[in-house]
Simulated scan of single mutants.
Amino acid sequence: MRNLSTFVSLGLAAAIAFASPVLAEEKAAPFTDAKEVNLVNLLPPPPANDSAKTKQEIGQILTIQVTRTPEMEARAKADAEETIFRFAEVVDNPKFAKENLPKFSAFFDRVVETEAAVVDPAKDVWKRTRPHLLYPDLVKPAVPLSKSGSYPSGHTTVGTLMGVVLANMLPEKRDAIMARAWEFGWNRVIGGIHYPSDIEAGRISGISIAQTIMQHDDYKTEFDAAKAELRSALGM
């Protein structure tokens, strides 16, 4: 029994030792934050919960809810993941994968973290109630739930931001990339988790963030390296 106890203890210690580096891994550093890109000053306030605009938007959401197909729901669920590799279908190259693009992947990790650094403080100011929380008996989301503020849409912001940056790396595919970025945001309405006005604000936010970080030296350096790696991997 003592030997078994010792074996279990050693196994647990080994598991903790192997897990520690993963737990200690730091998030990527954002390229900017809410101090530089203050969305509270940039965007108009969201419509009030009892406003005619919000009621009209709830009507849109309910119409979509009864007309969306299983395929639309599946796509909205997949787009809940905030990753540049959701653009794989428009890049349309088997080499467009994380394991082939370490510099590119690390660069876009920073891009994704930038959205949260800018958007989350604005969400906390406005605290717009999400559709499924405002009308819980009516709105039935098809995507993972969230209790954070609804406005602006963070997913739409990051989708737009990723689209702008990726389109600058692959200008040959700009139209398809930006169409995919627009769909990425709209899928939050299809999923029942956001209002259309959240999406509009998210698109403005994403473009504003992109315009800001493009002026930063660290962004320029990492962008150039990521772009070179991507185009080489894709044979472009």
Score class of each variant (00 low, 15 high):
residue 131 P to C: 15
residue 171 P to D: 11
residue 183 E to N: 06
residue 64 I to Q: 10
residue 28 A to M: 10
residue 217 D to N: 07
residue 71 E to Q: 15
residue 197 S to Q: 08
residue 208 S to V: 06
residue 151 Y to S: 01
residue 26 E to Q: 12
residue 139 V to P: 14
residue 231 R to E: 07
residue 210 A to I: 09
residue 82 E to W: 05
residue 56 Q to S: 15
residue 106 A to L: 10
residue 4 L to G: 07
residue 203 R to C: 01
residue 227 K to C: 08
residue 236 M to N: 02
residue 66 V to C: 01
residue 90 V to F: 06
residue 231 R to G: 04
residue 128 R to E: 12
residue 94 P to G: 06
residue 145 L to R: 08
residue 74 A to Y: 02
residue 224 D to A: 15
residue 47 P to C: 05
residue 219 Y to D: 03
residue 37 V to K: 00
residue 4 L to P: 01
residue 157 T to N: 06
residue 143 V to Q: 01
residue 207 I to E: 14
residue 197 S to T: 14
residue 89 E to S: 15
residue 176 A to R: 09
residue 52 A to D: 08
residue 150 S to P: 09
residue 100 N to L: 13
residue 60 Q to A: 05
residue 32 T to R: 13
residue 85 F to I: 08
residue 163 G to W: 08
residue 72 M to R: 09
residue 136 P to N: 04
residue 120 D to H: 07
residue 79 D to S: 02
residue 143 V to K: 00
residue 231 R to P: 05
residue 210 A to E: 06
residue 28 A to R: 04
residue 199 I to R: 04
residue 84 I to K: 05
residue 186 W to N: 06
residue 216 H to N: 13
residue 211 Q to K: 14
residue 195 Y to V: 02
residue 34 A to W: 07
residue 6 T to C: 07
residue 209 I to E: 01
residue 160 T to R: 06
residue 57 E to L: 12
residue 117 A to N: 11
residue 40 V to E: 10
residue 174 R to V: 01
residue 177 I to M: 06
residue 172 E to I: 10
